[in-house]
């Protein structure tokens, strides 16, 4: 029973991390049908920039806020200076631009922060918390809290704000959105900023657990991408649920079956999903353009 609880806690923590990474993929795919291969780098920047601001002597709250803002700005720059510049580019061209951007961000982090790993203390103490005999790091609660915050925030954004509704309209029909006066290029920038900020927030809360490193983004992005796929690729909520499903499956498969192939669980789930429910949990069947 304690073991079960332990695996559950592990699954929720890693699932929340995957969810926080996956949301950004879904947001960008929703707005531009492109896979943003720089998403993992936004997460990395969240942690790295926090470390950087902390060494400048800023208090943690300001350092974390600064990191999220910095990532959002980088997201806006990426959209404006690179993606928007490639006129009439195909989706594949945009994907390659994001790959290039990911390398540049990794390279920039390598130049500024070196090749070592970095971390900072957990927000509420380093000692593990006892929960009915199972142990968890207190920082896990912060990760889960961030995920809840992002979920509520996204819900509010799409349901209540004009901007959110404009994003929705752009996703449904870009041409119609332009006709009714929505500034589509601005919407795309907003989506990139949001993805980057959410990714960075994930990086800020996970770094005390996972530590950070200039090449941390690549493997994280792969898992986050899987989470988004399981969620249907176009749905931010789907990505969050997808992340939790992946995290829990990995923890239980690793715990009860064998950790040897734990790494493969996420990908087996994707294959199963493609066979049985190809549109993902929350995805709409993609409409093919004629």
């Amino acid at each position: 029973m304690v073991d079960f609880l332990q695996f559950l806690l592990s699954g929720i923590t890693r699932g929340s991390i995957y969810g926080l990474v996956g949301v950004g993929f879904a947001l960008i795919f929703r707005s531009s049908h492109a896979i943003n291969f720089a998403q993992g780098e936004f997460v990395m920047i969240g942690g790295m920039a926090t470390v950087f601001f902390l060494t400048l002597g800023l208090p943690l709250v300001l350092a974390a806020a600064g990191a999220v803002v910095a990532a959002a700005l980088i997201g806006a720059l990426l959209q404006r200076l690179a993606i928007a510049q490639a006129k009439n580019a195909s989706v594949l061209t945009i994907i390659i631009i994001t790959i290039g951007a990911g390398m540049m961000l990794r390279g920039a982090a390598e130049i500024v922060m070196g090749r070592n790993f970095h971390s900072y203390p957990a927000f509420s103490g380093e000692l593990p918390v006892d929960l009915l005999g199972a142990k968890m790091q207190s920082q896990s609660l912060w990760v889960v809290a961030a995920l809840v915050l992002v979920t509520i925030g996204i819900h509010f954004f799409f349901a209540r704000t004009r901007l959110g509704k404009a994003v929705e309209a752009t996703f449904s029909n870009r041409f119609a959105a332009t006709v009714i006066g929505i500034n589509v290029p601005r919407i795309l920038i907003v989506c990139f900023m949001l993805s980057a900020a959410i990714g960075a927030l994930g990086g800020v809360v996970m770094t005390p657990i996972t530590l950070t490193h200039f090449e941390l983004g690549v493997p994280l992005a792969l898992k986050g991408f899987c989470a988004a796929i399981v969620g249907g690729l176009t749905s931010p909520f789907g990505a969050i649920i997808g992340g939790l499903i992946l995290g829990l499956s990995e923890a239980f498969a690793g715990g009860y079956i064998s950790p040897t192939y734990q790494e493969a669980v996420a990908f087996v789930i994707i294959i199963a999903m493609l066979i049985f429910r190809p549109q993902g949990l929350f995805g709409r069947r993609a409409v093919e353009r004629v």
Binding site: I96, I99, G100, A101, G102, M103, M104, G107, A108, E110
Partner: peptide
């Protein structure tokens, strides 16, 4: 190196 490779791709 990483930075330049990314820049060239973009």
């Amino acid at each position: 190196r990483h930075f330049l490779t990314g820049l060239i791709l973009i």
